[in-house]
Amino acid sequence: MNLHPFPLLAGLCLAALGLPAQAAGSKLLLTGGVSSIDGAAGGGLTPWALTGSYAGPGEWGGSAFVTAARTSDYGLRVAGAAVAWDERLEFSIARQRFDTRQNLAPLGLGGLQLEQDILGAKWRVAGDAVLDADRWMPQIALGALHRRSQAGAFAPTLFGPLGARRSDTELYAAATKLWLQHSLLTNLTLRATRANQNGLLGFGGAQDRRWRLQPELSVALLLAPQLALGVEARAKPNALNRSVLGTGALAEDDWFDAFLAFAPNKHLSFTAAAVDLGRIAPALQPRRQRGAYLSVQLSF
Rank of each mutant, 00 (worst) to 15 (best):
L9H: 07
C13A: 14
L14W: 12
S26G: 02
S26D: 06
L28D: 09
L29V: 02
L30Q: 12
T31Q: 13
G32A: 08
G33M: 11
S35T: 08
I37R: 09
A40S: 15
T46H: 03
P47W: 02
W60I: 03
V66I: 09
T67K: 04
A69M: 12
T71N: 01
D73I: 02
R88N: 00
F91N: 01
F91Y: 03
Q96P: 01
R97W: 10
T100I: 06
R101P: 06
G108Y: 03
L109R: 00
G110P: 00
L114M: 09
A121Y: 03
A121K: 00
K122P: 00
K122Y: 04
V125Y: 06
L131D: 08
M137S: 01
P138K: 08
G143E: 13
L145I: 08
H146K: 05
R147H: 15
A155V: 07
T157R: 05
L178M: 11
W179N: 05
S183V: 04
L185E: 11
T189C: 11
T189D: 14
T193P: 08
A195N: 02
G202W: 06
A206D: 13
D208G: 08
R209V: 09
Q214L: 15
E216Q: 15
S218A: 15
L223S: 04
A228K: 09
E232F: 06
S243F: 04
G246M: 06
D253H: 14
D253C: 02
W255N: 10
A258E: 09
F262C: 13
F262N: 10
A263R: 10
P264K: 12
K266S: 11
A272C: 14
G278A: 06
A283M: 01
A283H: 00
R287V: 01
R288L: 07
Y293C: 00
V296M: 11
L298V: 07
